[in-house]
């Protein structure tokens, strides 16, 4: 009677690190800001130490991609120029996204079934942690981001000024942002301010950078697009210092077709609210 209980407790103890991403309980536990394998004396509200100049921090760029065969090669080439370690998460694409990505020397992770951008990001982040990343950058595959912004996001983390850098198009530059899309994004920002209490100027920006310990706090459970609000939530709750960095977003005809419709936005909001109730 006691033995199976003790055994399962032991298993959980031994497996805890590997299973952390798969254990629903760890999701609620994971936001203490300090994980158990880190010294507890370190207050979570201060940023990590700056990286020593002798060792270059390993920066990994995670690119979640779903049916992006038309642009993925260009995006990889552009990102390669500023960061050689790239992880493309092929989220069950039905086109040649994965095959094209495999042609360049990047890590390609394949979701057998399409699970949504949030799920792909989480997979990419976990793989980057496995690979020993010091800093993890998320980058959209549709070519709306400027690869030159990556170094601007990682700079404050490398300097030890913050753990999380969020790209903001409203602090930076937006090229050809449609009026309806602007309105929708404003609504999203207001929504996030109400639900998470975070004064973030651009909540739905795919360009973000995390220090290793910040990435360890991120556990995305919302598979679809609602993860954008979820990330902000978890960033706030982790208690780790974050800041916004102005970035450029380029709205092309291609990226516009990949974006969200107004109806989709309402669906995303519903998903997010339900996700907050359900643990």
């Amino acid at each position: 009677m006691v033995w199976p209980l003790a055994k399962s407790a032991f298993d959980r103890l031994v497996d805890s690190d590997w299973a952390a991403g798969y254990d629903p309980q760890s999701i609620s536990r994971g936001f203490a800001g300090v994980r158990k394998n880190e010294p507890m004396t370190q207050p979570s509200t201060t940023a990590h130490d700056a990286f020593p100049a002798s060792r270059n921090p390993r920066v990994y760029v995670v690119i979640p991609a779903y049916n992006e065969a038309a642009v993925i090669a260009d995006v990889i080439t552009a990102v390669k120029a500023s960061c050689p370690d790239i992880i493309v998460v092929d989220d069950g694409s039905r086109d040649a996204t994965g095959a094209i990505a495999r042609r360049s020397s990047v890590y390609v992770i394949r979701h057998v079934i399409n699970r949504g951008q949030g799920a792909a990001l989480q997979t990419g982040i976990e793989f980057a942690l496995m690979a020993g990343a010091d800093i993890i950058v998320t980058f959209d595959a549709d070519g709306q981001h400027d690869a030159a912004d990556i170094s601007r996001l990682t700079a404050p983390i490398i300097a030890g000024a913050c753990d999380i850098a969020l790209g903001s198009r409203f602090l930076g530059e937006t090229i050809d942002l449609p009026a309806v899309r602007r309105l929708l994004l404003r609504a999203g920002i207001l929504f996030t301010r109400v639900t998470s209490g975070a004064a973030v100027s651009d909540t739905h920006n795919g360009l973000r950078a995390f220090s290793r310990r910040a990435a360890e706090c991120i556990r995305l459970r919302l598979d679809g697009m609602a993860h954008a609000s979820e990330i902000i939530d978890q960033v706030i709750r982790s208690g780790l210092p974050w800041r916004e960095i102005p970035v450029t977003i380029r709205y092309t005809d291609y990226s516009r077709t990949k974006g969200q419709s107004s109806r989709g936005a309402i669906k995303i909001a519903m998903h997010y609210l339900l996700g907050r109730v359900m643990r």
């Binding site: 992770i109 394949r110 079934i113 989480q122 496995m130 598979d223």
Partner: peptide, 24 residues
């Protein structure tokens, strides 16, 4: 259904990471 989707995601992620580990 929601919990099922979450389980499927974790399964897909697990397979993806297992497959990808050989690249490391």
């Amino acid at each position: 259904l929601r919990y099922l989707r979450r389980d499927v995601t974790q399964l897909v992620r697990h397979i993806a990471l297992l497959e990808a580990r050989s690249q490391l």
